[in-house]
Design a protein around this nucleic acid. Structure first.
Length: 937
RNA sequence: GGUCCUGUAGCGUAAUGGUAGCGCACGCGCCCGAUAAGCGCGGUGUGAGGGUUCGAGUCCCUCCGGGACCA
C-alpha cells in the first residue's frame, strides 16, 4: 500500500501562478457583465455617504505612474469605505479645456488653422480631448478602479460649462471681479499674448546699459561725505526701451552698498558689484563711502528722461528679487513690463504703466518715441540718456544672453501689461475667510495646512482671463460706443442658460446683441450696441468649481465632500482654486478633508521624465505583470513622501504577491472538502494553538481596519504580508500540516483546523480586497461560501474582530511557548545540518521557572508546535532556555514521519503483498493505524 | 533666491523622547507530502556635524542629498 495515498493532501483548482495579464481582463469582463458597480451602488443606498470627489486629470496623453498612484489610492479608499458600510459614489472627471490641447491641435493643423473659425478649431480640440478621455478611461478601468465610468464629468460638457459661467456670475454678484492690467509675454509680430508654454528661450544680443538717476534730496543723511554733493542711483538693464516706463528703483536691504566718488558726485551701487560696474563704465572712483541703504526707503529720484509724474512715482523701495549676479544691486523697475516689477508696482500703488501697443510700438503716452517699435527705439533712448548725462557706459556695450522668443515666429518677445480680469482677494474678506476655512479643514499630512495657508495668505489677486480659444468665455460685453465693460449677473445667467443647452460655443456662434439680456443698456453712456469679450477663463477656475458642477446637486454626493485626494502640487492648484471658489461662492470650503501624496521618482529619488527615459513605461509593466502589481506598489509605499519605483521594487512586490497567493492557495487546498455550514466545529473542540491563531487574526483585523481608516495604506500591505509570512506560513499553517494531512479527514481534530483556517481565509481575503481587487475576487470564487454570501467579494463587508477576541492569558502563554520554540529551532539547526529532519528529533528543553507553567499546560502538544517527535520539559537554573537535541530512539512512522516508541503492524500487509514483494510487513504509529482503519484499509 | 516637505540595512517599512524592530532580497543549511512551493539559521542600518536632555531615529541649529510649489 502506498501510504502517501492515504493522506489528505491539499487539492485545489486555484492556480498557483497568477497569470494576471490574462486573468484580470476576464474578471473585469465579468464585473462589467454583472453590472457590479451599479449593484454596489443600489445595495448601499440607505447607508451613510462618504464622498471622495475626483480631481480631473488632464485629457491628454497616456496615463503615467502619477495617475496610477493617484487613481489607485482613491480606489482603495473608496473600496474600503464601501466595505466599511458607507455609500460611496465615485464620479471620475477630466479636465478638457486649456492650452496643452490647443497647442497640440495648433501643431497638428499647421497652416490649415488660418482658414478655420474659432468654432471649427474648438470642435477639433473637443474631439481631441474626448479621444484621450476614452483612452485614459480604459486605462483606469484596467487598473481595477470602480466608478461611474459611463457617466464621468467633463469640463467641456454643457452642464459643466453652465456651472462655470454661473460661478463667474457669483463672483460678479459678490463684487470680486474687476478689470486690471498685468504684464504678460507678448509677441509683437503675432500680436498676441503667449503662455509660458509657448515661449522658447534662445540666444539674443541686447544692449547693456548703466543709467544714473539723481536723488532729489541732499544725501548727507546717508554719509557726511555726501552732503552737498549730487548723489545718484545706478541701475543696469538690457532693455533700454523700458526706461521711459521706469517708475521705481528697488534695492535689497540685506546687501551692503557703497557710494563711489566720481567727477559729477557720488554713485550708489552694491559693494560687491562696484568693481564690475567701474570696469564696464570705465569710471574711476576717487573714494568709496559705505552707505546704509535702509535709509533710502521711499526717497525720491529724478527720472533722466521724463518729467515728474504722480507723487508716488520715482522712489526707492526694497524687494527680495534683487540679486548680486549682475548689474548694480539697484534694479530698474517698470511695473508694466516685468513680473517682479509688477509686484513692486502693486505693493506700492504704482501705475501699471505700459505705453506700448499690440504691435510693439510706443503709444502717445510717450510722445518722444510714439509709433517707434520698442526694439528700434533702444539706440534712440540710449542717445537721449547720454545727452542727459545719465548713460554711464559706452553705447556699444552689449550682452549675449538667453532671451524669450515666440515659439511660432521666433521673434523676441516683450513683457507688456495688458487688460485682464481678476478676482480681488481682499474684497469682502475673501482671503481672510479662506484662511479660516483652511483651519476648519483636516489636512493629511498635517503640514498641508501650513503650505496652503502660506500660499493663500501671500498670493496676489487671481488673474482669471486667458487670451485663448479653447475654453469657456468670460460672460462680459463691451459698449461699442464708450468701451465700458458690461459686467452683470443677468448677462452671466443668460450665458449660463445658453451654455447649458448649446455648450459654450454659443458665445461664438451668437451675436453680442443676441447674448445681451433684453433691454441691456450701457451703464456708462446708455449705448445699446455691444461687442463680446474674447478672453476665456483660467482652467483652474473651471476645475475649481467641480464641487458645484458635480457634487452640489447630486443626491449621491452633496457638499461639503468628505475628501479631496491629489498630489501635493495641488495645494497651489485644485485645492486652492476649489477653496477660493467655494468661499467666494458659498462661503465655505467644498471639502472636509484633503489628503495629498508625493511624486513618483526613480530609484535614485529623481523625478522621472520623458526626455531622460529613466523609467519603463507603465504599460510595459502592465503587459508583463498585470494591474495587481501596481496596486500592490501603491499600497506598499508611504505616499506622504515621494514614491519610488524601480525594477527591484517591482521584483520585491511580485515576491510578496506570490507569497500571499500561495498561502491563500494552500488554505484553499486544505479546505477543498470543507463545508462551513456542516463541518465547522464548536469552539470547545479547538486546541490552544487554534484559539491563539484566531486571536492573532482578531489583532490583524483591528490593525488593518485602523490602518485603512487612518489612510495609512502601507500599513495594510505590510501588516498583510507580515501576517502571511510569520503567523500563517511559518507558524500556524506549518504546525497544522500534520493534523490536516494525517488525521482522519472528517475527524474533529482536522475539522477544527479547517474551521479556523476557514475563518482566517475569509477575513484575510476580505481585508485584502480593497487592494488586491482581482486576487481577492479570485480567491472568493474558490472559497467555500455561506448561503448569504454575495457572489462578489466587493459586495461583502469588512470582517469584524468580534468573536476573535484576543485571550490575554492565552496570548501570554503562547509568547512563552514561542520563545522556547525559537530556542528549539535554533538548537535544531546543528541537528538538521546532519541531514536530519526536525521530526527525527527528540528535544529536551530546560526552561527557567517563570516559563515552566506556561509550557506545562500545553505539554502534550509541544512536539506538534515545535514540529519534532517528542519534547521533554525540565527545570533549569538561570534564566536562559537550554535545548538538547537527540535523535529520537524510536522507529519512524512511514506515514506521518513522526518517531514513536513502537509501531503497529498493519493487518492486511502481512499476507500476499509480503510474499509477493518479499518485503517487510508495513507498520505505522498507533494514530495512523487508527486513521487507516477508519478509512477502511 | 523664497515657502513647504523629506532622508532608518540592497529594497520596502516600524519605533507616546526610553534596549533600532519586521518583511523581502542576500548567504548558509534542511526538506522534497504548499513544489516555478515550504522550513530553519545568519550578517548588514538612523545622510554628516553640533546642541537640548539622565536618555535623541524622534526636539533645536548648521551642512549635505532629494522633492513640490513659487520667483
Amino acid at each position: 500500500m502506498e501510504l502517501k495515498k492515504t493522506l489528505t493532501l491539499p487539492k485545489t483548482s486555484f492556480p498557483q501562478r497568477g497569470n494576471l495579464v490574462q486573468r484580470e481582463p476576464e474578471i473585469l469582463a465579468r464585473w462589467e457583465k454583472d453590472k457590479l458597480y451599479d449593484r454596489i451602488q443600489k445595495g448601499s443606498q440607505d447607508r451613510p455617504r462618504f464622498v471622495l470627489h475626483d480631481g480631473p486629470p488632464y485629457a491628454n496623453g497616456s496615463i503615467h505612474y502619477g495617475h496610477i498612484l493617484n487613481k489607485v489610492l482613491k480606489d482603495i479608499v473608496v473600496k474600503h469605505r464601501t466595505m466599511d458600510g458607507y455609500h460611496c459614489h465615485y464620479v471620475p472627471g477630466w479636465d478638457c479645456h486649456g492650452l496643452p490641447i490647443e497647442l497640440q491641435v495648433d501643431r497638428d493643423l499647421g497652416k490649415k488653422k488660418e482658414g478655420l473659425s474659432k468654432i471649427q478649431v474648438r470642435k477639433i480640440c473637443r474631439d481631441y480631448a474626448l479621444r484621450f478621455v476614452d483612452k485614459q478611461r480604459e486605462e483606469f478601468k484596467r487598473l481595477g478602479c470602480f466608478g461611474a465610468w459611463d457617466t464621468p464629468y467633463l469640463t467641456l460638457q454643457p452642464h459643466y460649462e453652465q456651472t462655470i459661467v454661473r460661478e463667474i456670475g457669483k463672483l460678479i454678484e459678490g463684487g470680486y471681479l474687476y478689470r486690471g492690467r498685468k504684464p504678460v509675454y507678448w509677441c509683437a509680430s503675432c500680436r498676441t499674448a503667449l503662455a509660458l508654454a509657448e515661449v522658447e528661450y534662445g540666444d539674443h544680443v541686447s544692449p547693456s546699459i548703466y543709467v544714473k538717476m539723481d536723488l532729489v534730496e541732499d544725501a548727507g543723511y546717508l554719509a557726511p561725505e555726501l552732503a552737498g554733493k549730487q548723489t545718484s542711483l545706478v541701475i543696469w538693464t538690457t532693455t533700454p526701451w523700458t526706461i521711459p516706463s521706469n517708475l521705481a528703483v528697488v534695492v535689497q536691504p540685506r546687501y551692503k552698498y557703497v557710494a563711489l566718488e566720481v567727477e559729477t558726485g557720488y554713485l550708489i551701487v552694491a559693494e560687491d558689484l562696484a568693481d564690475s560696474f567701474l570696469a564696464d563704465s570705465g569710471l574711476e572712483a576717487a573714494a568709496r563711502v559705505s552707505v546704509d541703504v535702509k535709509k533710502l526707503e521711499g526717497k525720491k529720484y529724478r527720472h533722466p528722461l521724463t518729467g515728474d509724474r504722480q507723487d508716488q512715482d520715482y522712489r526707492v523701495w526694497f524687494a527680495d528679487h534683487v540679486t548680486l549676479e549682475a548689474g548694480t544691486g539697484l534694479v530698474h523697475t517698470a511695473p508694466g513690463h516685468g513680473v517682479d516689477d509688477y509686484g513692486v508696482g502693486v505693493d506700492h500703488g504704482l501705475d501699471i504703466f505700459a505705453p506700448v501697443d499690440d504691435g510693439g510700438c510706443f503709444t502717445e503716452e510717450v510722445p518722444a518715441y510714439q509709433s517707434t517699435p520698442v526694439h528700434k527705439a533702444n539706440p534712440v533712448i540710449q542717445k537721449d540718456l547720454q545727452a542727459a548725462g545719465a548713460h554711464l557706459n559706452p553705447l556699444d556695450q552689449t550682452l549675449s544672453h538667453s532671451y524669450p522668443h515666440c515659439w511660432r515666429c521666433h521673434e523676441p518677445i516683450v513683457f507688456r501689461a495688458t487688460p485682464q480680469w481678476f478676482v480681488e482677494l481682499d474684497h469682502a474678506d475673501l482671503r481672510q475667510r479662506a484662511l479660516e476655512e483652511i483651519d476648519r479643514t483636516q489636512w493629511i499630512p498635517h503640514w498641508g495646512r501650513d503650505r496652503i495657508h502660506g500660499m493663500v495668505a501671500n498670493r496676489p489677486d487671481w488673474c482669471l482671463s486667458r487670451q485663448r480659444a479653447w475654453g469657456v468665455p468670460l460672460p462680459i460685453l463691451y459698449c461699442e460706443d464708450c468701451d465700458e465693460p458690461l459686467v452683470s449677473v443677468e448677462l452671466a445667467e443668460r450665458a449660463a442658460d445658453l451654455f447649458g443647452e448649446e455648450g459654450s460655443d454659443a458665445w461664438f456662434s451668437r451675436s453680442a446683441a443676441d447674448l445681451a439680456p433684453e433691454g441691456t443698456v450701457c451703464g456708462s453712456c446708455g449705448g445699446t450696441s455691444f461687442r463680446k469679450e474674447e478672453d476665456i477663463v483660467d482652467v483652474w477656475f473651471e476645475s475649481g468649481v467641480s464641487w458645484a458642477a458635480v457634487c452640489e446637486d447630486n443626491p449621491d454626493l452633496g457638499l461639503p465632500v468628505d475628501l479631496y485626494l491629489e498630489g501635493s502640487d495641488q495645494h497651489r492648484g485644485w485645492f486652492h482654486s476649489a477653496l477660493l471658489t467655494g468661499v467666494s461662492g458659498r462661503g465655505k470650503a467644498p471639502y472636509k478633508a484633503v489628503l495629498t501624496h508625493g511624486f513618483v521618482v526613480d530609484k535614485d529619488g529623481k523625478p522621472y521624465s520623458k526626455s531622460k527615459k529613466n523609467y519603463e513605461p507603465p504599460e510595459k509593466i502592465m503587459k508583463r505583470q498585470g494591474a495587481e502589481i501596481f496596486r500592490l506598489w501603491v499600497a506598499s509605499e508611504d505616499y506622504r513622501n515621494d514614491i519610488r519605483i524601480s525594477p527591484e521594487i517591482i521584483k520585491r512586490l511580485t515576491d510578496g504577491y506570490r507569497r500571499i497567493r500561495n498561502t491563500a492557495r494552500f488554505m484553499l487546498g486544505n479546505l477543498a472538502d470543507f463545508d462551513p455550514t456542516k463541518d465547522a466545529v464548536a469552539p470547545e473542540h479547538l486546541t490552544d494553538v487554534d484559539r491563539w491563531a484566531l486571536g492573532r487574526l482578531g489583532a490583524l483585523i483591528n490593525r488593518l481596519r485602523k490602518a485603512y481608516e487612518d489612510y495609512e495604506l502601507h500599513k495594510v500591505y505590510h501588516g498583510l504580508v507580515d501576517y502571511t509570512a510569520v503567523d500563517l506560513s511559518a507558524l500556524y499553517l506549518d504546525i497544522l500540516k500534520d493534523r490536516l494531512y494525517c488525521d482522519a479527514p472528517t475527524g474533529v481534530s482536522r475539522r477544527a483546523a479547517q474551521t479556523v483556517m476557514y475563518e482566517i481565509l475569509r477575513a484575510y481575503t476580505t481585508l485584502m480586497a480593497p487592494v488586491l481587487v482581482f486576487t481577492a475576487e479570485e480567491i472568493w470564487g474558490h472559497l467555500p461560501r455561506l448561503p448569504e454570501d454575495p457572489d462578489s467579494i466587493h459586495l461583502a463587508s469588512l470582517p469584524s474582530a468580534d468573536g476573535f477576541e484576543v485571550d490575554a492569558e492565552l496570548l501570554a502563554r503562547f509568547e512563552s511557548i514561542l520563545t522556547v520554540r525559537a530556542a528549539v529551532t535554533q538548537g535544531l539547526e546543528a541537528f538538521r545540518a546532519q541531514k536530519n529532519k526536525s521530526l527525527d528529533a527528540s528535544v529536551t528543553v530546560g526552561v527557567p521557572g517563570p516559563l515552566r507553567s506556561d509550557l506545562d499546560s500545553s505539554a502534550e502538544l509541544l512536539h506538534d508546535y515545535f514540529i519534532v517527535s517528542s519534547v521533554t520539559v525540565v527545570d533549569v537554573d538561570g534564566d536562559e532556555v537550554d535545548v538538547t537535541v537527540a535523535e529520537h530512539p524510536g522507529p519512524m512512522c512511514p506515514r506521518c514521519w513522526k518517531h514513536v516508541d513502537g509501531l503497529v503492524v498493519l493487518p492486511e500487509t502481512r499476507t500476499e503483498e509480503v510474499e509477493e514483494n518479499a518485503a517487510e510487513p508495513q507498520s505505522v504509529c498507533a494514530r495512523c493505524a487508527a486513521v487507516l482503519k477508519e478509512l477502511g484499509h
